[in-house]
Computed example of a mutant assay.
Amino acid sequence: MIFYTFTEQHLRQFTENVFIQMGCPDTDAKLAADVLLRSDLRGIDSHGVARLSGYVRLWEKKRINARPVVKVVHETATTATVDGDSGLGLVVAPFAMKIAIEKARTYGSGWVSVKNSNHFGIAGYHALMAVEQDMIGISMTNASPLVAPTYTTERLLGTNPMCYAFPAGKYPPVVVDMATAAAANGKLEIAQRANTAIPEGWVQDAAGKTSVNPHELKAGGSLLPLGSDKDHGSHKGYGLGATVDILSAVLSGANYGPWVPPFVAFLDPPNDPVGEGIGHFFGAMRVDGFRPAQDFKEHLDNWVARFKSAAPIDQEKPVIIPGEPEYAAEKERKKNGIPLIDAVVDDLNALALKLGIAGLS
């Protein structure tokens, strides 16, 4: 496996060009590229530019609308439901989070559910939009059914990520951004490209036995919920994944459970949908709706400092604050560039050739 390093600006321009070739307006192309680049900058390589080909394939299948008319279809003072018009989730999700933030600015909190959308990148991007306004941000989405609930081999839930982001003072925001599965599918894709085994406890085979084969899903296996198997707390991950599915889709009118359309273009959506597209859920809460924002941030700083000072089991491995590795990666990659493995570079160059735009190298 070989790594190539690219500047943020180079990858950003390339990504914008791809979205423009799909027919996205310039503003949408810039926004979609920003969401993907934030993922790569934060070290979440599974959800960055490596996903570009997937979006293009869905657009070619007419499952992504490059010029959606995103609109509010139901609303109260503090809540709303948004119809994404089959648009890029990378564009629909920020639209919805902005509404949640504006409602929070006026009423203290805002809550927005979304239907008829697509994959929205990393949940952290959207939750951090609220943090920039001294608000607590909440972001979640359902996803293609790849996860088997506890005690079954049937895929009924997606990796269904959720994110909670909190503004701090002298420290970076505390960002809890995670899949509710034992591992995100993107991590399997990275292992597939690198042709390496995955850790035990991520997936099970078609018979329900644990496997370290990154290609197991293609053979009828499934991802496991957070907690791995029934003996290690998988019911907790199952419950979290179910919560995301209900808030994102049952609440909004999107597809849920096994009816969520797949991200991969070679699989067709179920022919008996129960809703529209995939669903998201966003929340924004003004910190000063509970106590002065400065007081909160000072005490969160104190919280961070105390946890960082916890006695480590291994002196080489100090306690990590949620979001700390991603913050460090973003600082380093903004300075030194973003590494991509050769398989991703080859894929993106092939995509550029197909679309008639300049390649990465």
Score class of each variant (00 low, 15 high):
I2S: 13
Y4V: 08
F6T: 05
E8L: 11
H10W: 04
H10F: 03
R12D: 03
T15N: 04
F19C: 02
F19G: 03
Q21E: 00
M22Y: 04
P25A: 02
P25F: 08
T27F: 09
D28C: 03
A29Q: 05
K30Y: 01
K30G: 01
V35K: 03
L37Y: 10
S39A: 15
D40I: 07
L41E: 05
R42N: 14
D45F: 13
S46K: 09
A50W: 01
V56N: 02
N65T: 14
V69H: 14
V72N: 01
T76L: 01
L90F: 04
V91Y: 02
A93F: 10
A104M: 07
A104H: 02
R105M: 13
R105L: 11
S109R: 00
L128N: 15
D134G: 10
M135E: 08
I136R: 07
G137F: 05
A143H: 11
S144N: 12
P145I: 12
A148M: 14
T150S: 06
L156M: 12
G158N: 04
P167R: 12
V175R: 03
A181C: 05
A182C: 00
A183N: 02
A184I: 08
G186H: 08
G186A: 08
K187Y: 05
K187A: 05
L188A: 00
E189R: 08
A191L: 02
R193N: 13
A194P: 01
A197H: 12
A197E: 14
G201Q: 15
W202K: 11
A207T: 13
A207C: 06
V212K: 15
N213M: 10
H215M: 05
L217D: 01
L217T: 08
G220R: 10
S222W: 10
D229V: 07
K230A: 15
G237P: 07
L247D: 13
N255K: 11
Y256L: 13
Y256F: 15
P258C: 02
L267W: 06
D268V: 01
D272P: 02
V274K: 13
G275Q: 11
E276Q: 11
G283T: 00
G283D: 02
R291C: 09
P292D: 04
A293R: 13
Q294S: 12
Q294A: 14
D295S: 06
N302V: 07
N302D: 09
R306E: 13
R306Y: 12
F307P: 01
S309N: 15
A311V: 08
D314H: 04
Q315N: 06
K317E: 15
I321Y: 02
I321A: 03
Y327H: 15
A328L: 15
A328S: 04
A328W: 11
A329E: 09
E332D: 14
R333M: 01
K335D: 06
I338D: 06
P339C: 09
V345G: 00
D347A: 04
N349P: 02
L353D: 14
L353V: 06
